[in-house]
Design a protein around this nucleic acid. Sequence first.
DNA 1: GACCTGCTGCGGACTG
Length: 709
Amino acid sequence: MSSFDLLPLPIKKIIYDLGWQQLTKIQAAAIENIIKTDFNYILCSKTASGKTEAVFLPILSKLERKTKGIKVLYISPLIALINDQFERLDRLCEYLDIKVTKWHGEASISQKKKLIVNPEGLLLITPESLESIFVNKPHLLLKLFSDLEFIVVDEIHNFLNSKRGVQLRSLIFRLQEKIGRKIRFFGLSATLGEYDNVKNFTGDYANTKVLLDKSQKEVDVKFKYFYSNNFDIPIDLITDLYSEISNKKSLVFPNSRAKVEEISIKLKRISSSENGLQNYFAHHSSVSKELRLFAEKYAKENYNKFFSIICTNTLELGIDIGSVDLICQVNSTFSVSSLAQRFGRSGRREDLKSHLLLYATNEWMLLQAIACFELYKESTIEPLEHINYPIDLVLHQTLSILKETNGISKENLVKRLTNNFAFKSIDITDINVLVDYLISKDYIEKVETELILGLKSERFFSKGDFFAVFETEKSFRVYHKEKFIGELQEVTEFMIGENFYLSAQIWKIKEIDFRLKKVLVIPAQEGKEPVFYSSLSNIQELIRKKMLSILFSSNEYDYLDENSLNELQSLRNYFSLFKFQNLETERPVAFIENRCHFYTFTSSKINLTLQLLAAILDIKTNLIEYKSCVIFGNNIKELQNIFKNFINVIENINKFFNEFIEKNPNYLNYLGKWENLLPNELKKKVWLNNYLDIDGTKEFLKNVKIINS
DNA sequence: GACCTGCTGCGGACTG
């Protein structure tokens, strides 16, 4: 019997009516397995392979229709994705007379109210909105969810190694705890490199299986090289880019918001000098929502027109903008997963290839880009691990539980936290330290035998920002007349009368209101790119090791242009001076102008940890992260001996780190949103467990062998 | 060399 035959008649009819010719591989596998078994499943297959239908067709087939109540909870990381999926699912469910409801910050309040009165069907929600139900409507939890049968998490890779993921796992645990049973669980993703962590997402490893379709879209790739000595975009690159995209539908991914603005303006300038179209849009988090939607709509609706959206990873996830001919990547992505997602945006119809054009502006970016692409071709994607030590989320969920229960004994509170599979890695001692600290600081009040939310904590709930566990920077809102254009972060960089780029247009500042954080602007002719805050880079070891192996191989890559080939060759020539025998353990050290350049070819976290070890021993270092190079001062002759001292420090890291923090207390000052509220004792553990890689560095130091040229 | 994500409740004005 084929998978199709397993479906009930009304569902078969839907498939006929939609005019589908056949089920995709993942759909056939999912229908068969979901219908015939009771396991949880993770569905992993390329973009546009119909994962949504793959999971929902069998779910709708199995749905218990006799009782009331919400049956399926679908959770997505993006509002835009919920809105897209709502359209698709509502169309499917209309046939079956099943209600679908959207619940997020921008969804209709009246629809939410209707659902509360009459809970039924499918609910599409964000983790933050789910949190808000626990916090503000705990009395409705049972009414809404006591008949729940399925939970579906879309783009689940987003929730694997993030704070948001810990929050979601905690909420799923609390929901199951509340209704007193486990809910069948499904996760969807196009980019997973490792499956143990995702199988453990709801703590039910043994009953969670992976359905994997490893087939990749055919890709057509070209690398070009335009040198720049400081990461600026060379004008030749822009001219070449213009000639490549002016008669196509394209997405251009530089790696920063400032570069998005720079490239957008320059493309528009070239285009207008040639009387070309002005269909160049900037799309990133600081562009106003209205302008972003305008670009998305333009791309989706103007089927026959060319356009280019220059964007950050705002357009990386599954938002539907229709089909795109070409993806341009300016310098390397920071992960293989990101590259794979971007491939997925081009040639979305089954029969079309993905086209990618990559521009590198220095030899290290070129090497990193080759490494990412080669890993992608081998179907190797970096593993995403759960966060080691999410004690800040324990704090957040403690406040949430106190609000939900309106009073709970300490014993019960600690039990709920320690039972929660999201917090498995945290010792009960630390949870007790945290709860006692919160009581001592009046975040929690003790009333007889019960704990309740302290007055001091009420302020966290006075505005909406409790629900998101991630931080957002405060910025200035930019207006032209009454129209909101976008946001500027470093307003101090600018004075009244100065010009800057934003949302692919040039503006002159007329007025700055520092109290209301508002900037009034008028259009202008010349300007410069805006400045945005940036964060720590985080490259995984896998990519760095691949870069090293490419340097020492003689493989040829036919997608490189002549300049790229020459650059790769000169980098290979330079490193051929080092006589390697074992790429796993040996690392090159070069002495340049009396300084010692140690090429670690390892993860950003290990590089950061090495720098800390040096700082503890009062040794000055410089880290050039994009080269994975730690530079030691001129007094270093015997690096191998220094590493022995490093190992000594790392074996006693707690003691040394404590002493270091006593001398450098600022080190603990600027942590994440909820980490800032922790006692110092736990903040130190956050550093050691989450920001550094102690075990990885220990391994690295024990094995590493220095090779001189 | 970095990027992204989300948001309740309530009062008051206005509409049909």
